[in-house]
C-alpha cells in the first residue's frame, strides 16, 4: 500500500468534510469536527508527555547516572492534584496545584510583560526619532502622538472631557486605523491558509485520482 497516497486522501477527505460547512451544517462536517477535537487532544497529551514530562520531570527524578531525586516527586504530585478536580470528594487538592501555577505564572509574567510590553515599547517610542526627511518626521510624530493619545484613551481615572477628551478622540482615531490594519492582515493570513488548502486539493490530491483509476501517465 502506498502510504503517501493514503495520507493525501485522508487529508483531502477531512478537508472536504470541513469545507462542506460552507454549504450548511451537516453530518460530514460534524464528523470531521469531532475527529479533530479528539485527535488534537490526543496529540497534546502525547506532546506534553514526550516534550515536558519525560525531559523535565522523569529525567530529573531518575537521572541517567542512577539514583532518585525525591524532590521531583513534589511537582509530579501537584500535577496529579490537578486531576483531583474530577473527583468531587478530593477536588480541593486541585487548589494547591492551581495556587502554584497561578503564583509562578503571575511572578514570571508580571516581570516579563513589564519588561517586554511596557518598558521596551516606551523605549521604542521615545527612540523613534526621525532620521530622514519630512515624511520620516511626520511618521515619527504620528507614532509618538498615537501611542500617547491611545494611552490617554485607555486611562479611565479621569473623565474624557476638555483636553483629555480631545486627546482621547485622537487616540480612538489611531486605534481605529490600527485595528483596521490588524484586521486586514488577519484576513489575509486566513486567506493564505485557504489558498494553501486549495493548492493541496488541486495539486496533491486531484492528480492521484487518475493514477488510482489507471488513467493517464
Amino acid at each position: 500500500m502506498n502510504w503517501e497516497i493514503v495520507g493525501i486522501w485522508l487529508g483531502a477527505l477531512v478537508t472536504l468534510c470541513l469545507y462542506s460547512f460552507l454549504y450548511r451544517d451537516n453530518p460530514y462536517y460534524k464528523f470531521a469536527e469531532h475527529l479533530f477535537v479528539g485527535m488534537s487532544a490526543g496529540y497534546w497529551v502525547i506532546y506534553s508527555i514526550f516534550n515536558v514530562l519525560i525531559p523535565n520531570w522523569w529525567d530529573n527524578m531518575l537521572p541517567e547516572g542512577g539514583g532518585f531525586n525525591w524532590i521531583w516527586v513534589i511537582p509530579g504530585l501537584f500535577a496529579l492534584f490537578m486531576l483531583a478536580r474530577m473527583v468531587p470528594r478530593i477536588a480541593g487538592l486541585s487548589r494547591l496545584a492551581l495556587g502554584m501555577i497561578v503564583g509562578t505564572g503571575a511572578g514570571l509574567n508580571m516581570l516579563t510583560f513589564f519588561q517586554s510590553n511596557a518598558l521596551a515599547q516606551v523605549k521604542g517610542t521615545i527612540f523613534s526619532v526621525a532620521t530622514g526627511g519630512v515624511w520620516s518626521i511626520f511618521s515619527s510624530l504620528v507614532l509618538v502622538v498615537g501611542v500617547v493619545s491611545g494611552l490617554v484613551y485607555f486611562f479611565f481615572s479621569k473623565a474624557h472631557t476638555g483636553f483629555t477628551g480631545k486627546t482621547a478622540n485622537v487616540g480612538i482615531t489611531i486605534l481605529m486605523v490600527a485595528f483596521g490594519a490588524s484586521f486586514g492582515y488577519t484576513i489575509m493570513a486566513r486567506l493564505s491558509l485557504l489558498i494553501g488548502r486549495c493548492t493541496f486539493l488541486l495539486e496533491d490530491w486531484l492528480p492521484t485520482i487518475p493514477r488510482l483509476l489507471g488513467i493517464g501517465g
Partner: peptide
C-alpha cells in the same frame, strides 16, 4: 506607523 502606535498603546 499607525498600527504600531495603536498596538503599542494596547500593549502598554
Amino acid at each position: 506607523i499607525p498600527n504600531t502606535a495603536g498596538q503599542r498603546a494596547v500593549m502598554i
